[in-house]
Design a protein around this nucleic acid. Structure first.
Lengths: 229, 229
DNA sequence: TTCAAACTGTCACCAGAGTTACAGTTGTCG
DNA sequence: CGACAACTGTAACTCTGGTGACAGTTTGAA
């Protein structure tokens, strides 16, 4: 069991973008030093402002991530799946965690503490470079999201978000999002009604297929055209 | 002249958040390996998608940063001043630059190339940790921005942005933003009219003073109340 | 199998932001 | 010092998207 989980962790880390150019020995070390944590639906992987330092890598399952806006509002940022990294070494990088992540299906995470990272860095100082790498990736995504919300109208925004979601979804398999229209609206700063009417229109022209609690992308190109319009 | 600039660079780096916990020798090395670049108004420090790797640290002056949204739209992200870091080691961190930065006043930048970083890392591997640190900070700001645009109504959003701007402004001196209402609107995804009317209302209740091309914050607390309302 | 909870589809109403346009002011560069 | 460009203040009109409400459907747990 534990064996199988470790094997899975090795695979997921090896396939993830931020580690793929690093030696296998570093990945093995991360798995060895890390601690595998199993979470059930509704449990929090980390809370915003949480000061536990360290890294969480999603090995299996998926979580919803939230971020706080002024006025105590919680804004859903997105869905994170296998290969994603949550938070990181806070002691040296200047702040508490940025997001709150909640399990939406039973998930397996690899927790690598700050101390473990220090130990790993003794033999593999490039681990910090790898961390800088995914931090960059997170920045890119966040910026992209901000730019979309600022400059796109609702219709374009919805299309852009659907595309971004399948891009970040990771698996590369069926481009299906497990998100309700309600949640999608929350992520986009729109009401369910607005989301619904646009989704219906997308469905009419064959770009997507929407069902109970999920959306299947049928025509990426068409969505891209709308997003760019 | 060059001496004075290098001295200034040392000061700015030493005072910047992302390097303040690192040894002075690392900072000296960065200045020594880096190249001081003087830019005039309208010149581009870096273009989005630009593949020159390396780091730019703003030593003096200020730049406007933009990011691309779908459809070829350019979205203004913010104003960066002394101490800010633009872009970073792209070769290992997986992507081209995220933002385009344009000088709005004569500025001095310290450019540290990818190769220089590698050289520095030989003696100071923690330089990558420092880079991860400011990447984290950039992520935080971008996320915050996205969260605000998603969840706040225009009035709250304007207040929140004014607060964020003085926070990131860096100098700590007079809380005055050198931004036109037009530009502020662009950054917020609002029209100038909307921005204008809310700014007037803020001015009426004594929270700010707005002049030709600039805004002075008089009452942070009051703005915070509006942002949180 | 049944029931409650969660989700989608739809409606009428309306506040508020976008649009377009113009006048008046401030700064700047020649 | 004069002309031009950039910026602010304001108004009338339009229309999108938010609000609140309700019915019908799917899901999953009791």
């Amino acid at each position: 069991m534990r064996q199988a989980q470790q094997k899975l962790a090795l695979e997921v880390l090896g396939a993830s973008g931020w580690l793929k150019d690093y030696p296998a020995a570093l990945i093995q070390q991360l798995v060895k030093e890390g601690r595998l944590v199993r979470l059930n639906v509704g449990e929090w992987a980390q809370a915003e402002g949480d000061d536990r330092s360290g890294l969480f890598v999603v090995i299996d399952g998926s979580l919803h991530s939230f971020c706080a806006a002024p006025g105590g509002r919680a804004v859903m940022i997105g869905v994170v799946g296998a290969g994603a990294v949550l938070g990181h070494a806070t002691r040296y990088s200047g702040g508490p965690r940025l997001v709150t992540a909640v399990c939406v299906e039973p998930s397996l995470l690899l927790e690598v503490s700050e101390a473990s990272l220090e130990r790993i860095a003794v033999h593999f100082p490039e681990v910090w470079r790898a961390i800088a790498g995914f931090a960059y990736d997170n920045t890119r995504r966040a910026l992209q999201m901000a730019a979309e919300v600022i400059s796109l109208k609702p219709r374009q925004r919805i299309a852009a978000r659907l595309l971004a979601a399948i891009d970040g979804g990771g698996l590369g398999g069926t481009p299906t999002l497990r998100v309700s229209q309600e949640l999608l609206g929350e992520m986009l700063g729109l009401t369910r009604k607005t989301v619904n009417s646009h989704l219906c229109s997308f469905e009419d022209i064959g770009l997507i297929r929407s069902g109970y609690g999920h959306i299947t992308i049928l025509n990426e190109e068409g969505l891209r055209n709308i997003a760019n319009s």
